[in-house]
Structure formats: C-alpha cells, structure tokens
C-alpha cells in the first residue's frame, strides 16, 4: 500500500470528508512524527509501535568495490520498534 492508496481507503471510510483534508490528515500525522524525531523526541503509539533515535558511532568503513578504507561519521538514525498489540496481530 502506498500513501495515495491509504488516502483512497480513508476516503472510502469517510465519505463526508474532503479528499484534500484526508491528504492533509495523513501528511500531518507523518510530518508530526518526523518533526518530533528531528527535535530529539520519541513518539509512542500504543498498539502500533514507537519511533525513537539511535546513535551510531563513527567507524572505519570500506568501499565494497575497491576495499579501500573510508571513515564514516557518527550519525543519528530513526528507529522503530513494533508494539505489543502489533506483534500479537502479526502472529495470530
């Protein structure tokens, strides 16, 4: 499913709402999560999962083609851990 398919599905379920409002709904939900992570915050959605940040240390990597050593800077990556409800739903 893509974002536009998700919006189409929500439109089916909510015939009284404008399509552009549903588009903005989906964008607002995911932009708000991204902004929270950008600010260093966590986002915890009970039954679904939690988004947080993980730090990765600087390391010496290797160009897989040439075998040449390259330094990789420390970075922060977004991390998602599925929630208990989701784990149960996927393993019924």
């Amino acid at each position: 499913m893509t974002k536009s398919e998700l919006i189409a599905r929500l439109a089916e379920l909510n015939p009284s709402l404008y399509h552009r409002d549903l588009e903005q709904l989906v964008n607002t939900v995911f932009d708000t999560i991204t902004e929270a992570l950008e600010n260093g915050d966590r986002v915890e959605l009970r039954g679904f999962g939690a988004f947080s940040l993980r730090e990765r240390k600087a390391r010496v990597g290797r160009n897989p083609r040439t075998g040449e050593a390259v330094s990789v800077d420390a970075k922060t990556i977004p991390f998602f851990k599925m929630g208990k409800g989701m784990r149960e739903r996927l393993n019924k």
């Binding site: 499913m1 893509t2 379920l13 709904l25 989906v26 995911f30 679904f48």
Partner: peptide, 23 residues
C-alpha cells in the same frame, strides 16, 4: 489518527508492505 494506524496495521497483517513517500 486511529483510523490511519488501523488501516496501516490491516495492510501489514496481510503481509503487504506500506510505503509512505518522504517518511
């Protein structure tokens, strides 16, 4: 908001992936 998460969950339950561009 719950409906958005629920529709995503239903799709994942079927084993399909959910692609949200720019997210």
């Amino acid at each position: 908001v719950s409906s958005v998460l629920e529709e995503i969950s239903l799709c994942l339950e079927t084993g399909d992936q959910v692609k949200l561009s720019s997210f």
